[in-house]
């Protein structure tokens, strides 16, 4: 399985010595499918490898560098648009990692710009972005009402010139989720960067990455998100992490994420956290389910996670209402 191979090589790059042509091909396909090929490119930089691989990985590093420029620029344009509001603007995920120069940002692919702002500033933020060239992606009134009522973000906005999306969050999990992290503390304890934009405090950053991996998502892109956690723990340690996670109601998510990181990437965590949980195996299998062609395998586990992800985000009755509205409009789940 190439997902397993990718994990093993990320954990111990020297194992590339044993790879033959098909091994390399599967590794690259899996890394691309997991959006980790830039990270892999940095991880393997300088090791002996076939010329063809060396060129592919050099391209991947260059591509990630350009992605970094674009992500930082998008953050800068958001900073300029929001400067007059005076509200703190906290960068999240990939953009935060590269803005802060963290290991997790090295070679990382970065998609949308995610920012966290105080809930009472959200109307001002929305107005300022709309007047600076951002537009709604979906003009659909149902989706719009759904986002505003139940999700942890504004409906996505896209910039009409630069064609980049921004997700404006006022908390880090949907309001419908059973867990409600302390959003005010996330903003209040955030740290300023030299340009005035902010990033989460280290332990909050780990909590958010874990929430994103386990509670919030369908585990798509999970290997990459878990690599983030591996790097963040490596860089910041775990002092105070458990207490902070408990404060946000994310203790179980953070501990599971940490155990998975140990299992998959060999992260160092406190001994007391190692107590296993049967579900870990399912999570791990789902994370690494990728074949030599870069395809997802084990479809059944994946479907389980799809439903699970929705259940976590929405109480069941609301889920039924949501799906019904989607189906009536001709929406069919992908898969």
């Amino acid at each position: 399985m190439s997902g397993t191979l990718l994990a093993r090589i990320m954990r111990d790059p020297s194992q590339v010595e044993a790879l033959d042509a098909d091994g390399w091909t599967g590794l690259i396909a899996a890394a691309r499918a997991e959006q980790m090929v830039g990270t892999l490119g940095h991880r393997l930089d300088g090791l002996p490898m076939p010329g063809a691989v060396s060129r592919i990985l050099a391209d991947a590093r260059a591509s990630a560098a350009q992605g970094r420029t674009a992500a930082l620029w998008e953050a800068e344009m958001a900073r300029r648009a929001l400067a007059k509001i005076g509200a703190p603007v906290v960068l999240l995920k990939g953009t935060a990692y590269v803005a802060a120069g963290l290991e997790a940002g090295r070679g990382r692919s970065i998609g949308d710009l995610d920012i966290l702002v105080p809930r009472d500033a959200i109307d001002g933020v929305e107005a300022a972005l709309l007047s600076a060239g951002w537009e709604w992606v979906k003009p659909d009134p149902y989706d719009d009402a759904y986002y505003r009522r139940w999700m942890h973000e504004l409906p996505p906005l896209i910039h009409r010139e630069r064609d980049r999306m921004i997700d404006v969050h006022h908390t880090v999990l949907p309001l419908t989720a059973p867990i409600t992290p302390d959003a005010a503390a996330l903003v209040g304890d955030s740290e300023a960067l030299p340009n005035g934009l902010r990033i989460l405090a280290p332990m909050d950053m780990i909590c958010h990455a874990a929430a994103h991996l386990i509670a919030d998502g369908d585990l798509a892109g999970g290997m990459r998100n878990l690599w983030d956690i591996h790097c963040l723990i490596g860089e910041f340690g775990t002092d105070g992490l458990e207490a902070r996670a408990a404060h946000h109601g994310l203790r179980a998510a953070v501990l599971r994420a940490a155990r998975l990181a140990v299992d998959v990437y060999g992260t160092e965590i406190p001994d007391a956290w190692h107590r296993r949980n049967v579900a870990d195996t399912l999570f791990k299998r789902r994370l690494l389910a990728r074949d030599g062609w870069g395809r997802k395998t084990r479809k059944l586990t994946e479907q389980g996670f799809y439903v699970r992800s929705h259940l976590l985000r929405m109480p069941p009755k609301m889920l039924a209402r949501h799906l019904w509205t989607k189906w009536r409009k001709g929406y069919r789940p992908v898969g």
Binding site: A21, T25, P50, A52, V53, I56, W293
Partner: peptide, 8 residues
């Protein structure tokens, strides 16, 4: 080259 394709 090297039996390793650029793209799948």
């Amino acid at each position: 080259e090297d039996g390793i394709p650029d793209f799948t």
